[in-house]
Design a protein around this nucleic acid. Structure first.
Lengths: 349, 349
DNA sequence: GCTAATCATGAAATCGATTACACGTTTAAT
DNA sequence: ATTAAACGTGTAATCGATTTCATGATTAGC
């Protein structure tokens, strides 16, 4: 009680502890304190090092990052832009990024953009804070924003998007191949009337998935089946699926552009009195945690998040370190996760 | 094409533009440049102000935040700690925080903690970056961490948690009253065998909900019904619900500690061949977006996120500004959202 | 039209670190 | 033992802003 008050009295001064305070207490010069805290094994005698460390701990000293950044020009801050927090895929990704970046001593400055392409103004925040790299998930920069970063030589890495004419790095799941495999899988398990509930048309991801899917049908000599556009969202997908199922009663399977739209579609199916997978098979895309909820048990394509995040960080570090700045695009394969939403209708086996 | 190369040549220098550069180009002194950019209407003649602004735009000048923060001791950075990104409630909250904070010119430094109480080490990141406030959602600080912030006079605001002996601010939904209302609602709509699927026992939130629920039963002269502990998670809740429904076949309703555990429970119900709400009613808590998905259509208690976030930010600003540091706790009521997962079994109406 | 008050502006100090440099000690080399 | 290299440590410069202070110019007051 008394001790607490005492402490408070000191705290009223609200004076932050600086390297000078530590130096005084340890009986060394201020640069020596700095040397103890500069990560590398700087030359300072074991004895003084110990004295400094003790003094620092006693005072609760933490080097001031702003002073550090000012002189070193390094901020250890990474900017992450995320547009679509409503799709659980992205929080999962964010969490992974945080975990892996912080392990490497980086910090996450977070920007969430409501719109699909990021406002100039938001971008300025990143520039002001001298982020060492920018990771953009599920959105594209405006070209003027991209130019800004290029001018500052700040690497931009797209996660799960790319634009053909962009000079930025990108890490993506091999969407074309994934959709191709899913198409094959459905055909091989005896489906003949596949409906693809796609996402909005203007993204690379959606484009590639659509192409892969169509190519697999073509290979299997099936004529193109119904394709409708949702917006990667459960409610919209529910609406769309319901409608398409009514219009095309022969449909035996739904391939949905992502997991949450699959969830919406599943409800549409059961609302129409059909069963999954007995009457209609459903396949998703992403393999978010919810996909394995007993409620869904969704067969889906796993985007290997962990690997993708890892790769993104590697590219980032490579760029920051070696200044290798020829734009790299990394394709990660992923895999089909078979659960319980697809029935084998093939008579053969 | 050519222009682009030209530009690049300049950029190779990678020299950052400082106030001095602007000053030279505008033919003024460096402090004058600073005065133009310091938010307040500083005294600088209209003519020079214009010259400076033009020069700044031409060079693409942005004041260096690190230099600014160093001298002003203001960082405009808010630290947010979030443990439970798997529950969609929290990404929704994060998104709101970001939106509202950025509107006020603050930035979000993000920390996600796997464990329920936050590691000392993570906390140091906040201290290093001199965050002006810390918002903690769904977790508590260790007492030594709390002490650290107190010593730095950094306000900590708990969102959706509080601890009785903590000297920090808190904004919470009135969990006691909410659970009380839900209990009443279920009883009044004719339910007599209510099972409460709670969360882990050690949190204030869970405690208050349990108390409120029990008190409402008591008031209605019902003897305490089955209470089981899940962990606010769909899969666990599925398991638990299945078991409890088998053991107690008379149960007519489930009150779940949050929405996602309600989703799990719903599946348990239908897996056992019972219907919602005809055979068993289900109520959730939170009103996350998914609750209104057609798939669920869950009757639930709305935690008024927007209001809660707003309140949290207000307390934060008050603390930062007026130095009013007597710990404030703000209770926000919330409301029952009636959808389609509860049946009126009362014979009266 | 003279003094006082106001305003605009530059010079210099400052924030809290890092780091080049120089100097004094210690250790190694021959 | 003598010289050179290596090491430890303090002094001073530096990063890029803000801010105090002083000075000179401008306006107002009478």
């Amino acid at each position: 009680m008394y001790a607490a008050m005492e402490k408070n009295k000191f705290d009223m001064k609200n004076k932050k502890v600086t390297a000078i305070d530590v130096a005084k207490l340890a009986g060394v010069s201020q640069p020596t304190v700095s040397r103890v805290f500069s990560s590398e094994g700087q030359s300072v005698s074991a004895e003084k090092r110990k004295r400094v460390e003790e003094a620092a701990k006693l005072l609760g000293y933490q080097p001031n990052v702003f002073a550090q950044s000012l002189i070193t020009n390094k901020t250890r801050i990474i900017g992450i832009v995320m547009t679509n927090l409503h799709n659980p895929f992205y929080p999962e990704v964010l969490s992974l990024f945080y975990e892996k970046l912080s392990k490497k001593g980086y910090h996450v400055l977070f920007i969430s953009s409501a719109s699909d392409s990021i406002e100039e103004q938001e971008i300025h925040q990143f520039i002001k804070y001298h982020v060492e790299a920018v990771i953009v998930t599920d959105a594209l920069l405006t070209s003027s924003a991209a130019e800004l970063f290029e001018r500052q030589n700040t690497p931009v890495i797209y996660f799960n998007r790319y634009s053909r004419n962009s000079r930025n790095h990108a890490v993506i799941c091999d969407n074309y191949n994934a959709a191709f495999q899913i198409g094959n899988y459905l055909v091989e398990s005896g489906h003949r009337n596949i409906c693809y509930i796609s996402g909005p048309e203007n993204t690379s991801t959606t484009e590639d998935r659509r192409k892969g899917f169509l190519d697999s049908l073509r290979k299997n000599k099936l004529k193109p089946t119904v394709i409708v556009n949702g917006n990667y969202d459960a409610e919209e997908s529910y609406r769309v699926a319901k409608q398409v199922l009514l219009e095309h009663p022969t449909i035996d399977s739904l391939f949905c552009g992502n997991d949450i739209s699959a969830f919406g579609a599943m409800k549409a199916v059961t609302d129409l009195g059909k069963r999954i997978p007995e009457d209609i098979s459903v396949v998703g895309f992403d393999d978010i945690r919810m996909a394995r909820w007993p409620l869904y048990n969704l067969t889906t394509w796993k985007q290997p998040m962990e690997e993708m995040v890892e790769e993104t960080i590697n590219i980032m570090l490579d760029h920051i370190g070696n200044k290798l700045d020829s734009p790299t695009t990394k394709l990660i394969p992923g895999e089909l996760i078979v659960r319980n939403s697809v029935k084998n209708r093939s008579s053969v086996d």
